[in-house]
Amino acid sequence: MGISVEEVRKVAMLARLLLDDEELQAMSEQLTKILDYMELLRRVETSNVEPLAHPLELVSVFRPDQLAASLPREQALACAPRHDGQCYLVPAVLGEL
């Protein structure tokens, strides 16, 4: 089962990656090869198998509702590419994305 350049383009948008035509082509070929290999898994019958999401099957882990120190704002913003001393800055957000 392959993945076409068009599909790769859609997935790239979903993943917020920007690939040029050459990269799209290469990605389509590589992913097709990898997905072909994954076809191996179709041989395994799993309809009665519970999926395993966590290897260590712990449950009900909580923390108490207690306040802890927040980061000083300068320190939080220090890592940011662009800020105005109060907020992170990004190009205008207009409606839904």
Partner: peptide, 14 residues
Amino acid sequence: AYYLHAARVRRLIR
């Protein structure tokens, strides 16, 4: 077909 199936195969491996 992919994630969920793989998570099931993962249990078989375990």
